[in-house]
Design a protein around this nucleic acid. Structure first.
Length: 417
RNA sequence: GUGGGUGUAGCUCAGUAGGCAGAGCACCUGGUUGUGGCCCAGGAUGUCGCGCGUUCAAGCCGCGUCACUCACCCCA
């Protein structure tokens, strides 16, 4: 029989990768909770219309990257390509937004986009997502950025760069777009690369961050969104920056930072790494005032971000994975049952470790203990069994002693409350 | 959707001009009567991705196919 393979762009995560994902997810939960985020678990499958309306009908994500299919009654459903839309739909549908203040939500899980896989990009990938709803205060923008940066710092990630921009609002963005189109009309468009010739019509902002040197040179003097912001947006952005400056958070203003989803406006940001290949963004987000209303909810502002877990994992070392507390080596087959019960007792006390299921040479089992990087190797052989004892060896120092089996917890550092 | 690269042991990869399938790591056993890491000796391990073709002979050449991978596009 032929083997069945996993489908392209999907992955099976074994440890250490699975462990790393769990650790990162737990840390995110913990850090974001200190900012008041409540976890929400929302479906992976939504009505296609939800994404069409939020992400934007004309975006690449909606046009050609969604897993969309008809269910058994012919309704068009889509595997979520990002988290925000589903979280907002749930928020609106729950009707919990009555009063004052903001709602802070955390969500995570798999997302799906039909793209060609490459380094840091899969068809099923995982995101950590935060949404802060109900306030457009610049303090909220700053807090969200600080929340993200704090999480990444606690993960121990270095050499990350935070890029910040403001995309303006429905009032000033069209003005900038017109200026940009006017500018593009003045340059020799035949010199642009093939992609940019297309972009100039479809998504002029994208021309600004083209990597082709010829394009870069041509748009060097293009107008900046920053100069086109209306007074409200300019003031809002300047307050956000002021707080981040005071918090001594290092960021780089990038007036060509473009977001791929239509709903973003005002503050947008991205965290990039130079160490994980071409797919350099490990997190990205921004403000989306107006989106909640557009999805049939109240007219509330919102801001959020998502982190790509696979990309974070590329940067996160395996050194963080905790080692087991013990390995229990068994030298005599008559000791196997006793050994298992001793290990069970330790596990009930919260210690983690493994016990051998068969008696083998002490040498091979010591090797096993060493390989598992355990703190302590326990040995149960004929001698110990006869005296009701067990040998305890500290693998770091090599110091070993025989103790009574009843004293095992103390020997491993267990303190009774 | 487009372009490049790679498929050989569990992993990373050599494999010359077409002539018996290789190394390192990892694993197992022993060197030490019950002691890990370092060292030494020995050992097991293959649909050379798959199919067809050329040839006395194919891991190597040709055609096809599948998979993986990197990049473009796009994006977290």
């Amino acid at each position: 029989m032929s083997k069945i393979q996993k489908i392209k762009g999907f992955s099976d995560l074994f440890s250490p990768e699975s462990t790393i994902h769990t650790l990162m997810e737990n840390l995110a939960r913990q850090v974001f909770a200190t900012y008041g985020c409540q976890e929400v678990r929302v479906p992976i499958l939504e009505k296609t219309e939800l994404f069409a309306r939020s992400i934007g009908e004309e975006t690449d994500v909606v046009q050609k990257e969604m897993y969309t299919f008809a269910d058994r009654k012919g309704r068009s459903l889509t595997m979520r390509p990002e988290a925000t839309a589903g979280v907002l739909r749930a928020f609106i549908e729950s009707g919990q937004y009555s009063g004052d203040g903001s709602t802070k939500l955390f969500a995570c899980g798999p997302m799906f986009r039909y793209e060609r896989p490459q380094k840091g990009r899969l068809r099923q990938f995982h995101q950590l997502d935060v949404e802060v709803l109900g306030t457009d205060a610049p303090q909220a923008d700053a807090e969200v950025v600080l929340m993200l940066w704090t999480f990444l710092s606690k993960l121990g990630l270095k050499n990350l760069a935070l890029e910040l921009n403001s995309l303006g609002c429905p009032e000033c963005r069209p003005v900038f777009h017109q200026r940009l189109r006017d500018f593009l009309a003045t340059i020799d468009q035949t010199q642009l690369c093939e992609d940019c010739t297309r972009r100039a019509g479809t998504n002029p902002l994208r021309v600004l961050d083209c990597k082709v040197p010829a394009c870069k040179a041509l748009v060097e003097n293009a107008p900046s969104i920053t100069e086109a912001l209306c007074s409200g947006c300019a003031e809002h952005f300047s307050q956000v920056r002021e707080i981040l400056d005071s918090a001594k958070l290092p960021y780089r203003l990038n007036d060509r930072l473009v977001r791929g989803l239509d709903y973003y406006q005002r503050t947008t940001f991205e965290v990039v790494s130079g160490e994980i290949g071409a797919q350099a963004a490990v997190a990205g987000g921004g403000r989306y005032d107006g989106l909640i209303k557009q999805l049939g909810g109240p007219d509330l502002p919102g801001i959020g971000f998502a982190c790509g877990m696979e990309r974070l994992a590329l940067l996160y070392g395996e050194a963080h994975i905790p080692a087991p507390d013990f390995y229990l080596a068994v030298l005599d087959s008559r000791a196997l049952n006793t050994a298992l019960l001793l290990a069970q007792r330790l596990r009930e006390r919260g210690f983690a470790g493994e016990v051998s299921f068969e008696a083998r040479s002490i040498k091979s089992q010591m090797r096993q203990a060493n390989k598992l990087h355990v703190k302590t190797c326990l040995v149960l052989g004929q001698d110990e069994m006869e005296k009701g004892q067990i040998m305890v060896k500290d693998m770091a120092t090599g110091v070993q002693k025989n103790i009574g089996q009843d004293d095992l917890e103390q020997a491993l550092g267990f303190r009774k409350p």
